[in-house]
């Protein structure tokens, strides 16, 4: 059996259509991961011991339980508490909430390099805590942690394939389907890998660009 570009060419429209779901889950997941990750990070280093413990518990749960299990929980268990989410929403939520645990830790690590004097200076100026985080701490933490954050976002794109278990026709699922019809796994999976690779290349390219823009000194 020779490698056939024709098979790829013929199925490319289906793969690209599926990649749209992959993109949607990834982008939605990223948005949740970053925003919720910032709040989690703040909770993790908060002075209030209850909030701190809750944040720790959250991180330990979402890093400890396999994402597949989390996804099934979001999809099958939320309806019991009256929250009946469509599959795509459950997938985005699960991926984002899980990734946020990792993002929070990356930001927390980066924050440790920011001298305490900066926070003190802001407090001395009477800058409210919210602006302190928004204007001073978060931008610096993102700058320092950027390569690690890009790591996390790329991992997020890869795990979006798990959404296939709740029936979403994303890239991996559709590749499997096409393989089932064409019996050409090599061509189809290489094509899928290239599409994942291109998505990730764009993400890391944007990351490098942001790194250059944010560089100081």
């Amino acid at each position: 059996m020779n490698f056939s570009f024709e098979v790829i060419w013929h199925n490319l429209p289906y793969l690209l259509a599926a990649a749209r779901w992959t993109l949607l889950i990834s982008l939605g997941g990223m948005a949740i991961s970053l925003v919720w990750g910032i709040f989690l990070c703040a909770g993790r280093i908060s002075r209030g011991s209850v909030i701190r413990s809750l944040a720790r518990l959250y991180i330990s749960f979402f890093r400890g339980v396999p994402l597949l299990v989390q996804l099934l929980m979001f999809y099958y268990m939320l309806p019991y508490v009256g929250l009946d989410l469509p599959a795509i929403a459950a997938a985005i939520l699960a991926v984002g909430m899980c990734s946020a645990a990792y993002t929070a830790e990356i930001l927390r690590g980066a924050l440790q390099t920011i001298p305490a004097g900066q926070t003190e200076a802001a407090q001395a100026l009477g800058i409210p805590t919210l602006s302190l985080w928004r204007r001073i701490l978060v931008p610096q933490a993102i700058r320092i942690g950027l390569p690690s954050l890009v790591n996390e976002l790329i991992l997020l794109v890869k795990v979006s394939s798990l959404a296939s278990v709740v029936g979403i026709g994303e890239l991996t699922r559709i590749s499997q389907n096409i393989t089932g019809e064409t019996y050409r796994p090599l061509e189809i999976f290489i094509a899928a890998a290239v599409i994942y690779f291109l998505i990730n290349l764009v993400i890391s390219g944007l990351g490098r660009l942001a790194e250059k823009r944010l560089e100081v000194g």
């Binding site: 890093r63 990792y102 830790e105 990356i106 927390r108 690590g109 980066a110 440790q112 390099t113 320092i144 942690g145 690690s148 790591n151 996390e152």
Partner: peptide, 10 residues
């Protein structure tokens, strides 16, 4: 200092 947490993550 900033990398122990991401290393643990990974």
């Amino acid at each position: 200092v900033p990398t122990t947490a991401p290393l643990t993550n990974f």
